[in-house]
Nucleic acid binder design. Structure first.
Lengths: 343, 343
DNA sequence: ATCAGCACTCATCACACCTGAGTGCTAACA
DNA sequence: TGTTAGCACTCAGGTGTGATGAGTGCTGAT
């Protein structure tokens, strides 16, 4: 497809996209000819633009307006046209210092990170805390802390640890707890943690559990131990999106906010990004977020010391400053990984 | 002040407020005369309205429009005019069932509660999880769980418990931990938990700590144990606020969202509500939220089994359906208190 | 292949005008 | 004295008209 594009066409397309990103207004032929010091007249540019429109890279909102890039144009732009900016020294400094700032511990850093992303990009920053429910179960241990209080320690195959305090209705002896642990460690080898939970839930309704009081209660506790705590997700800079001229219209904004309110949707969207390495870019309908809202998403993975994987990124309008945001997301992901590996 | 108001004036004021709440449009004299089947002509109503305007209960956006209530009007309305609706059976059912739904444990219930509030009121639901930093410190204990892993158990004078897992850089023996505990229990009696933390921070910089390695590290750990975990706050239904016609204007919306983004502001606002019992109502500028945004807040406290206090409520436009929202907030607070005391 | 020129389109703006809801005031009435 | 009908006045908002200008597509010359 893009082989058909002559170098000149590509250059013009790039110019249009960048102009549009800068101004948010349809760009006309003369603007391209002028601002980009091409040795071409506006008429020639017009011809090229007509071609580009036919190929589906541009549309015009109406006859006598300039043209605006389509999703397809953005796609080819980020794939092959955009010249990525370097992350400036100042930005690097900010990323490193601000990420730590918001608080301590994992969630503190991540919160700070989402804020930093939002600040640097001027769009919405978003961070999904690593969850290790996809990891393979290795070992579980229950420790009796006191009356009706149990500490569950869950280890995944990657060495990730998860501690959880559980308060129970009845009291259990240390021996009971050891037996519970052995039972699970024996039965659940090789399953992912999500699967372990499913298995437990299944057994809870089984015949055996109906008769065996201890087993039944053990399952209940275990279930709490492996239950996925709602994926922590940090969104910062929601107000910033209102700065974008294309969202000054109330109806569209409403659409966006409603989409975000179901955080489940976001998580789902973002978990797709977890599998691949490096920066990933979703443009407009590729996000499969609200159909018409013209939103783009730039994400990257990060890794913790215990090898669990989280996701961070930036959400903004399709008309986003890709050239600067992409490197920022990339660099931030690296830095967060580094920061977390030090802990 | 409101003694000056004749019964008729009050009745008319009430009618205007309720009309305005229903329609969000300035209400004119004839509308009042007609819709409320008063045996009065519009001319008479006009006279009364002129009085009310002079007294500061009404303003007109411009000469030939109707009048809209001022904050002062809303104040007197909620204080003495409004006829509170009963919470319907259906709503009660919803409150009870939905609050439990979102998940388990405290934060699950609270999340569900904020969603329920939002759904029933059609405004924004908001819940602040109880924090016990204002409670008086009673007892702290450190338990060694394993290499470099400590469990801190903090008890407040009201009997509230807080467990926290702490990972340390160095390893500590059980004896070390007991000594640390004794030290704190001894020194910090009678202070609130917030004060305890301040005290610890102070001592960390003291001369003694500079020389005493163990003390210094003990303080560091203790500080983590009593550190206030960012008050959990659940906001649900942010998109709903866009339904309100008065916020269809983009600039105002932006203001609102920016205000909410600093959750600190919200927390501050809400912690004011913690002291008093029963439903509290803040109208417009009384919220000391963004000055011009015309926002009201209806809140009530709830109490957990361990006697810590949280806050829940509804945020909406000043032009809010007070008559139905107030009872809903009231009832929800009672129900949540009950729900939590069962745990 | 490039470009100057030209006719054409159409959103946007400014201006004027009209309409109607709502007001304040006054004078009459109970 | 309180209430009401009537009337002149105000002013936001809608509608219509014409001018403006940015931008286009096409054509014919270079």
């Amino acid at each position: 497809m893009d082989i058909e594009l002559s170098p000149r066409s590509r250059q013009i397309l790039e110019a249009i996209i960048e102009d549009y990103i800068a101004t948010a207004e349809p760009v006309g032929s003369s603007a391209v000819a002028r601002r980009h010091a091409l040795t071409l007249s506006s008429a020639t540019v017009r011809n090229v633009m007509a071609n580009l429109e036919e190929m589906g890279f541009l549309t015009s909102p109406h006859t006598s307006a300039g043209r605006i890039p389509t999703e397809k144009a953005y796609r080819i732009y980020v794939d092959s046209l955009v010249a990525l900016r370097q992350v400036s020294r100042d930005e690097k400094r900010q990323i490193i210092s601000h990420c730590r700032q918001a608080g301590i511990g994992l969630s503190g850093i991540l919160k700070g990170t989402s804020r930093t992303l939002s600040q640097l990009s001027n769009y919405m920053g978003i961070v999904v805390a690593p969850s290790f429910t996809a990891d393979v179960f290795r070992h579980i241990e229950f420790v009796r802390l006191g009356q009706r209080k149990i500490l569950a320690i869950l280890v995944s195959s990657k060495g990730a640890l998860q501690n959880r305090l559980i308060e129970t209705e009845d009291d259990y002896s240390s021996e009971d707890l050891v037996r519970m642990g052995n039972y699970l460690n024996d039965k659940m080898q090789g399953l992912t943690i999500t699967q372990v939970r499913e298995q437990i839930l299944k057994e809870m309704t089984s015949e055996k559990a109906q008769y065996d009081q201890l087993l039944s209660r053990a399952l209940k506790i275990s279930e709490q131990a492996v239950r996925a705590e709602g994926d922590e997700i940090f969104v910062e800079g929601q107000a910033r999106i209102l700065d974008q001229p294309e969202f000054s219209d109330a109806a569209r904004m409403k659409e966006i906010y409603q989409a975000f309110e179901q955080k489940g949707l976001l998580v789902q969207l973002l978990s797709r990004c977890m599998t691949a390495d490096g920066v990933q870019i979703y443009i407009g309908s590729e996000t499969s977020l609200s159909k018409s809202a013209g939103i783009s998403l730039i994400t990257s993975r990060f890794v913790t010391s215990s090898n669990t994987v989280g996701m961070l990124g930036v959400i903004g309008p399709t008309r986003m400053g890709y050239s600067s945001v992409i490197p920022i997301v990339d660099y931030t992901a690296r830095m967060v990984s580094k920061l977390l590996s030090e802990v």
